[in-house]
């Protein structure tokens, strides 16, 4: 599968992680096998959506006419995996961040967007 069946890519406002049934390794992008132990047995778990912002870019180029500028972040979730999302308001590396789901992507889906403000 190239998408978790019940997460934001299917319109459900949540981040879903894969969890290895054998070694408890966790990942974000869907995988058929655990990259650490090779096991093919895994389960899915909803993420809290909280984490540490480790990277932010303000991008002035897109593949869509009129799509820029936009801001993207990498957030290391408290569960471990790194997630890419859009950015709402101010966010810099080192900030605690929390996910929201907003219609900011290139399509109509609600996409993960990280915010410092959402913590308060």
């Amino acid at each position: 599968m190239s998408r978790h069946h019940d997460d934001w890519t299917h319109g459900e406002p949540r981040l879903v992680l894969g969890v290895c049934d054998d070694c408890e390794n966790r990942w974000y992008l869907p995988r058929d096998h655990c990259p650490r132990c090779g096991s093919g047995r895994s389960s899915s778990r909803q993420s809290s959506g909280d984490g540490l912002c480790v990277a932010v870019t303000r991008s002035h180029v897109t593949g869509e006419v009129g799509g820029a500028p936009l801001s993207l972040a990498l957030v290391q979730l408290d569960e471990g995996p790194v997630v890419m999302g859009r950015v709402r308001d101010e966010l810099v590396p080192g900030d605690r961040a929390r996910v929201e789901f907003v219609p900011d992507g290139t399509g109509t889906a609600l996409v993960p967007s990280f915010s410092r403000r959402a913590l308060t």
């Binding site: 974000y28 480790v54 932010v56 991008s59 897109t62 990498l74 859009r86 992507g105």
Partner: peptide, 23 residues
């Protein structure tokens, strides 16, 4: 499904690497 629909591009992916590196 997880990166391109956010508006990801090659310069943006490398910019995220640069941001993490500098920080």
């Amino acid at each position: 499904h997880y990166e391109v629909p956010l508006g990801g591009t090659v310069p943006a992916y490398y910019a995220l690497l640069a941001s993490r590196y500098l920080w």
